[in-house]
């Protein structure tokens, strides 16, 4: 339990790298990548296009052995990052070999709601991989631009931290079980909604029409308004089937987005259900997975005797370029020469 070296990975190693400035970023990441390349481990780097450029230059020919993906696409909705890592691990894992990843999901211009969901994502990585295959994920945090409380949370969501060039266990790591606990972080206060309706079985058509109408009036194009109605319908369906038979829908508009909130009396106790890619088995749940693939942000909370789901759709459609994320576009951005 004392080995801080990432080269001896026999289980999932989730590590935060605290850096300030480009030189520290390069010094903290390049040896990690090079070690992986030297041992023939598959390496995937999910970073901003600028950092990918920096890393490619610093890695020189080793860059040819590394997969790169754009975090602004993969992580536009942070709930799509775990499926991308799952895909990477499942495709490239071979018995007896580890894998490596670098992923920087949090940057200073992330909106407040996105930041909280990214922090939830960091915790859920422990749940998704903590008891699975051995691989090593390094998550850079820019201490020059991120607030101290963001760094503090990274100490709780990562089992290891690299600070000032040395790796050690994080004393504040919350552990796998606490990472899986129901999430009840406060939601942003909402303005008076444009609409607030209760619904039960038989009302879904009315729910869809209301969402569509409001979304179009707020400035979403027809296709994205329809898509938001599809996602809201699934969440409301969950309320009817699993959340006490009814729910409350509220719709409002923020500066750059439309938000639909569904509130019911259900208990949400499957922390990864919205980010586990459903298999072909028809009975496996799909509603919240679908919502994450269709919407720009999905916030799920369990409060006292209530489950709340907020679906965000940005007015600017360019923010949703990675709509059909998964396999196709991830592959397109992951280029590994022969």
């Amino acid at each position: 339990m004392t080995d801080p070296s990432p080269s001896a990975v026999n289980r999932f190693r989730h590590e935060a790298l605290f850096y300030s400035g480009s030189a520290e970023f390069v010094n903290g990441t390049v040896p990690f990548v090079r070690e992986g390349v030297a041992s023939g481990e598959p390496v995937l780097v999910v970073e901003s296009p600028e950092k990918i450029k920096t890393l490619r230059a610093a890695l020189e020919r080793d860059a040819d052995q590394v997969f790169f993906a754009d975090m602004s696409e993969v992580g536009a909705n942070p709930a799509r990052i775990i499926p991308a890592w799952c895909d990477f691990v499942n495709r490239h894992w071979v018995p007896g070999k580890s894998l490596r990843g670098i992923g920087e999901p949090i940057w200073s211009s992330r909106g407040a709601d996105e930041l909280v969901e990214c922090q939830r994502h960091e915790s859920l990585l422990n749940v998704a991989f903590g008891r699975g295959r051995p691989w090593s994920l390094l998550c850079p945090y820019d201490t020059a631009t991120l607030r101290p409380e963001v760094i503090d949370e990274a100490r709780r969501s990562h089992e290891f931290i690299v600070e000032g060039g040395s790796a050690r266990r994080s004393e504040n790591f919350r552990g796998i079980d606490a990472s899986a606990a129901a999430f009840s972080a406060p939601l942003a206060s909402a303005p008076p909604p444009l609409d607030e309706v209760t619904f039960e079985k038989g009302d879904l058509r009315r729910v869809r029409e209301l969402v569509r109408k409001r979304a179009v009036a707020a400035g979403l194009d027809e296709s994205r308004a329809y898509t938001l109605a599809v996602a809201t319908n699934e969440v409301a369906t969950n309320s009817i089937l699993h959340g006490g038979g009814s729910g409350t829908l509220r719709i409002w508009q923020d500066v750059d987005r439309v938000i639909c909130e569904v509130r019911d009396r259900g208990v949400f106790d499957l922390p990864l259900v919205d980010r586990e890619a459903p298999g072909p088995d028809p009975s496996s749940p799909r509603g919240l997975w679908l919502a994450n693939q269709l919407c720009d942000l999905v916030q799920i909370r369990t409060f006292h005797e209530a489950t709340v789901v907020r679906l965000h759709m940005r007015l600017d459609p360019r923010a949703n370029l990675s709509l059909v994320t998964d396999v196709e576009s991830t592959e397109a951005t992951m280029i590994l020469p022969p």
């Binding site: 298999g279 072909p280 799909r286 679908l290 709509l323 994320t325």
Partner: peptide, 9 residues
């Protein structure tokens, strides 16, 4: 709806 079919696998 075709998109829905795709993303639900």
């Amino acid at each position: 709806l075709e998109t829905v079919l795709k993303v639900t696998g």
